[in-house]
Design a protein around this nucleic acid. Structure first.
Length: 298
DNA sequence: CATGAGCGT
């Protein structure tokens, strides 16, 4: 009886690696193995911390990098009476065996790097600028910052105008009717060129006294805790009146809060009341400093 | 202690 024996199976395709199993191919990594480890020195009594790192640069040379940072010293709010009282409680549970002052909570020394995704732009806006020839202008060159809403130069963009909700920006781009010879009505101005609000037809109709001067009633808030975010600040300041901007300064490299920020009020009186009420206010265990902001550098 | 970023009209 003949048995149909199949031949050996065709050589299996080299199994595809799933990306989780793929090896990183970072050039220079083999060299990195021989580098001295990263050192962290301090922070010392004055809060200065040094980090020494070694790496191999593009030319294959060993590079030593020393980063010096200052650890922030913050004015802490007074502990509540109850919190002070709790400190004298006898230890219980596992803590009974701990030395005075030791902690049960483990502090991890592992560095966890968070990558912050950028705020996604709206699809509508992307589509709009893609089809707009004027959106191509000024790319790679110095651009004059001019607000379309209030006409103020060099202070803020239209999207940041403190009046954007109060004053309707009129049509920004006016197509001048072509003259008989086919050129633009305005000499030297190509069709579709930007026309500042003051020069637009019908500018007077809405009143030429567009409230212009405004220092944006900028209030500086310092001694913010590390995890105070803009929504928190907004929440805290909105009770005094409409805000035109809330900003928390972040470290560009680490995305950590730099411990200060700015709140801009639509109305100066509201800003003043906020300063009076919130300066010295205990917030998230720190004492806030709230005062008028100096005008922006540059 | 500390004085701001940005897609770019």
């Amino acid at each position: 009886m003949a048995i149909d024996v199949q031949g050996p199976p065709a050589p299996a395709q080299p199994s595809k690696l799933r990306w989780g199993e793929m090896e990183e191919e970072d050039e220079g990594d083999d060299m990195a193995f021989f580098l001295p480890p990263r050192q962290v020195i301090g922070p010392d009594e004055s809060g200065v911390k040094k980090v020494v790192e070694y790496r191999i640069n593009e030319d294959g040379n060993k590079v030593k990098t020393t980063t010096t940072t200052r650890v922030r010293k913050l004015a802490h709010a007074r502990l509540s009476k109850r919190a002070v009282e709790r400190r004298s409680w006898p230890k219980f549970g596992d803590a009974v065996h701990e030395d005075v002052g030791s902690r049960l909570t483990m502090v991890s020394t592992e560095e966890i790097l968070l990558e912050r995704p950028r705020a996604p732009g709206t699809k509508a806006e992307e589509a709009k600028s893609a089809g707009d020839p004027l959106a191509q202008m000024g790319k790679g060159g110095a651009v004059l910052m001019l607000c379309r809403t209030c006409g103020k130069k060099g202070d803020h963009w239209t999207s940041r105008c403190p009046y954007k909700d109060l004053a309707q920006p009129s049509e920004s781009f006016v197509e001048k009717p072509p003259t008989s010879d086919g050129t633009s009505a305005a000499a030297g101005i190509t069709k579709g060129a930007y026309v500042p609000p003051s020069m637009r037809a019908g500018a007077e109709k809405t009143g030429s006294d567009m409230r212009r001067r405004n220092e944006e009633n900028s209030v500086r808030v310092t001694n913010l805790s590390e995890d105070t975010r803009e929504p928190d600040l907004h929440e805290l300041f909105r009770t005094f009146g409409p805000l035109s901007r809330v900003y928390v300064a972040l470290d560009q490299k680490t995305s950590m809060s730099r411990g200060f920020g700015f709140v801009n009020f639509v109305n100066r009186e509201d800003a003043e009341r906020a300063i009076n009420k919130l300066n010295g206010y205990g917030y998230d265990n720190l004492i806030l400093r709230v005062e008028w902001a100096a005008p922006r550098a540059n």
